[in-house]
Design a protein around this nucleic acid. Sequence first.
DNA 1: TCAAAATCTTGCGCAGTATGCAAATTTTGC
DNA 2: GCAAAATTTGCATACTGCGCAAGATTTTGA
Lengths: 195, 195
Amino acid sequence: MTLPLRQRRRHETALQIQRATLELGTENGLDHVTTEEIAVAAGVSTRTFFNYFHNKEAAAIGHPPEFCDTDLVALRDSTAPLAEDIKRLLDEHLNKLAEDEAILRMVGNVLRDNEKARGILDGFLLSQRKELAEVLCHRMANRQAADALAFITTSAIGSAISLWEHENNITLSTALDRVWEGFMDASKLLSQRGE
Amino acid sequence: MTLPLRQRRRHETALQIQRATLELGTENGLDHVTTEEIAVAAGVSTRTFFNYFHNKEAAAIGHPPEFCDTDLVALRDSTAPLAEDIKRLLDEHLNKLAEDEAILRMVGNVLRDNEKARGILDGFLLSQRKELAEVLCHRMANRQAADALAFITTSAIGSAISLWEHENNITLSTALDRVWEGFMDASKLLSQRGE
DNA sequence: TCAAAATCTTGCGCAGTATGCAAATTTTGC
DNA sequence: GCAAAATTTGCATACTGCGCAAGATTTTGA
């Protein structure tokens, strides 16, 4: 836990920049705030801003948490029903996301009307999906099915966050429950009388 | 079929710009080509380029086909098994996409390493997903399940294209078959012993 | 058929984005 | 403390995207 000063500073500055970006960005939309304004608000020079992030959209997204390695291993080796195991992984992951709801909400605001930010987030999801598909391959022979499950799983996270944003008085956790239930219902509907 | 000259011109110029963008973009990556180069290649001024598209990434994506209205109505009103109906919709849609495989392949190239372009495409998919979820709501009580199905459906298109790009000697249609089979398998796996 | 109205193209100018480079500053290890 | 390593910063530069107004083209309607 005792990282060198330099690394702690770096981490902290990155967070400050992300916060400044999100706060200014949620007010009037990220497109209407300049990188210079963000840099000033974060207390660094414009040039330094670009040392931390390639662009303001990346700064808004920041460094979202990845799937926890131990959770992935648990998913790979478990023999419980697949749906239960995946749901457990999602619950764990959402707990991490729920640690800073303020940021999560602001990220949502920015994503709503910024295509570039969505693209950047999409990149993150893509790599998570790949990682997950790799793990799921160990539990099923069919590669395409593993990809499909990975797709369903990662998109459940986004759907849950979206539901949590739009409904009032709902926790992230119950939002995920509702979304997951929807996916389970959808699975049943698709399986019915399928050839 | 006899549109005014102005509209036909407009449509044609848009296509020329898209082609120029994709051809230059696939060579060295879209980031390494300037809007001015694209404009020159397309035979218009830089300013006109921006009259047609907000940015070069949007020019690369162009105006992808949407779900056909009659197909959507058919899906809504059919009483056949849901999986069959959705597959039929997807087949129709992919046929339209397959009409210009050259463009489709170049779009894929550009998307691979351009976040902004992915974000723009994501916006298209989002609206398609909404449209589809609206339709699916008529066939099931559960809103979340409709959203989930819409998600699965639209992502099958992307997966199919991706598979078609990476495997040699495979048609778009058979790529979709494989992907869809994967989704069906995934559905069955999720349904097994689910509470 | 022709002139007015509507629409489109283009050049110019300007604010903002992003990066390379080198000097100044800060942190680290000793 | 001090030299080496890493970081921040200002400056220069190329590119993006759009407002504006002038000029060109197409459509409309008599």
